[in-house]
């Protein structure tokens, strides 16, 4: 059986601002299996966002293959939902209209759209904010709407590019729990970009540790702690220490 995503020997070369070339990724190979929650972690310049952009279909690799269900990725599509760091909601649409946006593109009837947006608003506990515009929502609420909007198409894979980097620590914790809840319920796969070790250990079933200049995979750490995880348990601490060490050596 083929993996959901296969990245085979992928490299990406970029022009820097002073017109020299830099390797964002060099010879990277990794698979994402059905139902996995993968966190890619690494310092800036390690190519983790480039990897996400290649899988999302926003950019093409300079060399190597990026496959989705065995076929080359041809561009962005509704089979891969994306949640960006921030400001990706449509500010002229309410929460409900943002969530209904993909269905409106497909010409889904108003009643069906409404039923779906009701369901997803309830899932993210934002029924009370259905008719508010993004400008009237807190950072955490906005990201919950963004997650719901990305999930309405029922994607096989959810790509998240440092989605909680701009929210405060308390909100961040509850957003992490919420994403895990949705993941367990809806059974999609996740590629989650972060630079926060604790976040990676709390969320993922597998951690990809990357290193910069050139962007490469340094180590892949499987995480077999059962969910829900206890951040204060010794096992959690041991894994944190392990990832931290790999990250810094």
């Amino acid at each position: 059986m083929t993996a959901l995503i296969e990245i085979k020997n992928v490299s990406k070369i970029y022009a820097t601002s002073d017109d020299s070339a830099t390797w964002a990724l060099q010879g990277v190979s990794v698979n994402i299996e059905q139902g996995e929650f993968i966190c890619a972690i690494g310092p800036s310049g390690c190519g983790k966002t480039t990897l996400l952009n290649i899988i999302g279909g926003f950019i093409t690799p300079t060399e190597g293959d990026a496959l989705l269900n065995g076929n080359a990725i041809q561009g962005p599509g509704p089979d891969r939902g994306v949640v960006f760091q921030e400001y990706a909601l449509f500010s002229w649409l309410t929460s409900r209209e943002n969530i209904e946006f993909p269905m409106r593109l497909k010409g889904v009837s108003k009643a069906d759209r409404r039923a779906m947006s009701d369901k997803y608003l309830e899932m993210i506990n934002l029924t009370h904010a259905a008719d508010r515009y993004p400008g009237e929502l807190s950072g955490g609420m906005r990201q919950r709407v963004a997650v719901a909007r990305a999930l309405v198409n029922e994607p096989q894979l959810l790509l998240m590019d440092e989605p909680f980097a701009a929210v405060d620590a308390m909100t961040r914790t509850s957003l992490q729990e919420e994403v895990l809840r949705l993941w367990e319920k809806l059974k999609f796969s996740v590629l989650f970009i972060t630079h926060n070790i604790e976040e990676a250990v709390f969320l993922s079933s597998k951690i990809i540790i990357m290193s910069p200049h050139p962007g490469r995979i340094k180590e892949i750490v499987p995480v077999d702690l059962p969910y829900p995880r206890d951040r204060t348990s010794p096992d959690f601490g041991a894994l944190y220490a392990k990832v931290n060490e790999a990250f810094h050596t």
Partner: peptide, 19 residues
């Protein structure tokens, strides 16, 4: 990021332009 969002949500170039 808005254009990328639209594309990943399934918008055609025409829909991206007007929506």
């Amino acid at each position: 990021v808005l254009v990328r969002s639209a594309k990943s949500l399934g918008a055609t170039p025409y829909q991206t332009m007007f929506n």
